[in-house]
Amino acid sequence: MINKDSKVLLEVKNLRAEVGGVQILKGVDLTIRTGEVHAIMGINGSGKSTFSKVLAGHPDYAVTGGTASFEGKDLFSLEPEERARAGLFLAFQYPVEIPGVSNSALLRLAYNTLQSERGLEELDPLEFEDLVQEKLKVVEMDPSFLGRSVNEGFSGGEKKRNEILQMAVLAPRLAILDETDSGLDIDALRIVANGVNSLLSPDNAVVMVTHYQRLLNYIVPDYVHVMDGGRIVRTGDKNLALELEARGYDWLRAAA
């Protein structure tokens, strides 16, 4: 929902970043306000996944220029855990498996860490159980997943739903969904999309990084950005995604 008076959550200016000495981002500009849903699209190698990892603070990526301000704070001066505490969330493209750490233990530890860092009250296991049972409904997950090790033996769709469960529990201000639609069948896509939609509010915002228009049928974006060669080369509304779907990315390049 676009409201020009709403608060700026994230402001990225002329962002440049490299991985392993190779320049990937070559000057990205993006402003996100509360209540907005953004989609970043682009072909493989356009820099869209790099952009999401740089925002979350992945150690393999080095920022070489530009700024990112998150609710007024210099994002790049914060460690990944500090960004999480500030309210930034990345749903991973390839969620890691962590044998030996149960889903419920991780969720509670993460939730209570954020609470205590924000000076808020932590929940004991019983109180947390009530909270997490509610959140399970958001992604239609069976409670048996809580007792299992994080993502271990989960299907592709279950892993992605688990990411959204974490988002539901941690309630971030800005969620970046990095190709959350990849590897999902149509039912799982619908569940994940319903989950995300139910978490949207005028106080938060979502960025979807995706290759395909499919997800955008379910989570309707206010803005669609196209990345190419490490820059955002075109911004439009949801119709831009439909046009890309119909005509391919080459059309855009030819136009540019």
Partner: peptide
């Protein structure tokens, strides 16, 4: 595992706490 460490930090855990959790998990098996 560097990816697991980054994942846990991205969920708000401090470096030491994330490392301890992963070490503990390795032992827990």
């Amino acid at each position: 595992d560097a990816d697991a460490l980054f994942f846990l930090k991205s969920r708000g855990l401090k470096e030491a706490s994330a490392r301890n959790l992963l070490t503990h998990a390795f032992a827990a098996e």
